[in-house]
Each structure stands twice: as structure tokens, then as C-alpha cells.
């Protein structure tokens, strides 16, 4: 069934491609690799997407390069995570001088549009301590169900700037969502052993991921996003680990090892490396394999 569908979809894509041969692909700029991967899933070979933040770097602390301004110059769309995650993009757009890429412009796409945000604490940018997270937790792409909303936003934007190909983009999105739904069933099964088991994360990255897959992140090593742990916070974590029998500490490859190792050494908990973005580990080559990898790690650890 799945194979037949896929064949039909590939056929449809091939036909569309043949029809549009010779067309220049639409140049799209995304701030992160995750948006890039989703955009590629929707736009297929009609779009050429570049992402600004290298996958191993922390997008919340990214410093744009001169090249990034040049990349915006001929961009048909700018995709951003929003929710105060990539605030530096505003400055970059201002530097490029292209109004239509700025907030409210017709080529500006805030992918957090219509997402149900978690951890809302403030109403403005720069809440107390550390980098924002004031407008809600920005790591919403880690809930694969949100991909449906994100790709919907992308499709709407593509149809706006490239109306003749709207049908092609819609087919691309439908096909992607079909694959995503199949995958989600498999992930739900695979992740079952890890559900509800207490874990500790370094940064408060996993709220959406936890909600979708019913995972229990009991605490974070950072007391507030971007703030290194204090001694009493570490003591509290040690207690949580002991009391709730925490078996795993989760870190991303770009997060500091020291505190994680310290806690793991004191408690015997396993350290799991999870990827929060496409490309953060070599196995997570695109949006779907990002979850393949993460769910695989969790299933392996708690089997």
C-alpha cells in the first residue's frame, strides 16, 4: 500500500518536473536546517533552499556573517523559526534593505504561525535571565505533528510568490505528510519503553518532543535557558536523580559535556546524545531521519 502510494507520488512529481523543465528554482533562505528540510520536502526540485545557521551551532546565539546578507539579496522567501528563537534575522533583513523580507512583508514567513506554544512565561522579548524563551519555548519543530502546521504555512507562502506552481507544492506537501504519518506510527511504537521514564536535559529543548511522545523530562541542568547551573541547582538535580531514579541525561552535541558528565558520574545515569536539529548528528540528514535517530537512541537506551 505504502509502496504503491510512494510510486504514484514519485510518478506525479516526475510528471510535474517534466512539465516545469527549464524553470529556475525558487531561491529560499531558511534560518535553520530544520526549516530547510521541511521546505525541501514541500518544494521538491522547484526550490533551492539555503540555511544560515550551521547545524552544529546554537541558533539562539548565532552571529550572522557578511555572506548571509548576500544570501538574502535574491531570496524569494525568508523562513524563520520565530518565537524569539532567531532574533538576529531581523537585523540581517534590515541590513539587506529588502522590506518585503521584514516582519509583515509578503516574502516573510514566520513558521511559528498558528503553533500552540508551550512554556509561555512573558509577553515580550528578553525575559529575566538568559536568552529569551519569554514568548514561549521556540523548539516547536521537535513535535512532528507540528510539521503539518509548518508545512501548511510554507505552502501558503509558496502559493503566494509562485502561484502557477501551487498545485505542485501542494502535492509535495501531501506526499510528505503521508510519509510523516506512517513514520509517526512507527515512532510511537518504538518509543513506548521510554515513555514516562524520568530524564534530565541540559537545555529546555525538548518540551514539544516530550509532549508528542509522552516523555518525562524531570528537570534541566540549566536553571534558566542560557544560564549555567549554580551549586544549589546541581544539588537539587542530584536529589531529583536519586529520588525519581533518573536513568538518562540528555545532551545535544553542541552542549557542554562537563556538567552532564559530572551528574552522570555521581549517579550512574546514562548520557544520551539527541539531535535537536537536522544535521546536528550525521545520522539526522533530514527532518524524518532526525526523529528516526532520536527515537532510535531512546528505544535503545530504555529497551
Amino acid at each position: 500500500m505504502g509502496a504503491a502510494l510512494r510510486f504514484l507520488a514519485v510518478l506525479a512529481v516526475a510528471l510535474w518536473t517534466a512539465g516545469a523543465a527549464g524553470q529556475q528554482p525558487l531561491r529560499v533562505v531558511a534560518t535553520t536546517t530544520d526549516l530547510k528540510s521541511l521546505m525541501e520536502a514541500v518544494g521538491g526540485n522547484r526550490v533551492q533552499v539555503v540555511s544560515l545557521v550551521p547545524p552544529q551551532l546554537d541558533a539562539e546565539d548565532y552571529q550572522p556573517k557578511p555572506q548571509d546578507v548576500a544570501r538574502l539579496r535574491d531570496a524569494a522567501l525568508l523562513l524563520r523559526v520565530g518565537a524569539d528563537y532567531d532574533l538576529w534575522a531581523d537585523k540581517l533583513v534590515r541590513q539587506s534593505g529588502r522590506r518585503e523580507l521584514a516582519r509583515g512583508g509578503e516574502r516573510y514567513v514566520d513558521c511559528s504561525f498558528s503553533i500552540a506554544l508551550l512554556d509561555v512565561r512573558g509577553t515580550e522579548v528578553g525575559a529575566s535571565g538568559g536568552h529569551a524563551h519569554g514568548n514561549g519555548n521556540p523548539h516547536y519543530w521537535l513535535d512532528p505533528a507540528n510539521a503539518e502546521i509548518i508545512t501548511g504555512t510554507m505552502l501558503e507562502a509558496l502559493a503566494r510568490v509562485d502561484a502557477p506552481n501551487a498545485k505542485f507544492y501542494e502535492a509535495g506537501r501531501t506526499q510528505f505528510l503521508q510519509r510523516l504519518r506512517d513514520k509517526m506510527r512507527a515512532w510511537d511504537q518504538a518509543v513506548a519503553p521510554a515513555q514516562g521514564k524520568p530524564m534530565i536535559a541540559y537545555h529546555n529543548t525538548w518540551a514539544y518532543f516530550a509532549r508528542r511522545f509522552r516523555l518525562n523530562f524531570a528537570a534541566t541542568i540549566e536553571p534558566r535557558p542560557g544560564v549555567p547551573p549554580t551549586p544549589s541547582h546541581l544539588a537539587g538535580l542530584k536529589n531529583i536523580i536519586k529520588k525519581q531514579n533518573v536513568m538518562a541525561i540528555v545532551r545535544q552535541p553542541n552542549e557542554p559535556l562537563k556538567h552532564v558528565q559530572f551528574l552522570a558520574g555521581k549517579s550512574g545515569a546514562k548520557v544520551l546524545v539527541l539531535a535537536a536539529s537536522v544535521g546536528a548528528v550525521p545520522e539526522a540528514g533530514d527532518y524524518l531521519s532526525l526523529f528516526d535517530y532520536n527515537i532510535g537512541v531512546l528505544a535503545q537506551a530504555f529497551k
Binding site: 550551521p54 551551532l57 546554537d58 552535541p253 553542541n254 552542549e255 557542554p256 559535556l257 558528565q261 546536528a280
Partner: peptide, 19 residues
């Protein structure tokens, strides 16, 4: 271009005497 790059530099500055 390295992962942990900026983190590495932050560590050099503030260190990790606690852990």
C-alpha cells in the same frame, strides 16, 4: 565551524570549577 565551538570559548572564559 566546529560543534561546541562557542561553548568551548565560553568555558575558557568562565571555567567549570564547580564540576
Amino acid at each position: 565551524k566546529a560543534p561546541q565551538g562557542t561553548e568551548h570559548i565560553k568555558q575558557v572564559l568562565t571555567g567549570n570549577i564547580l564540576t
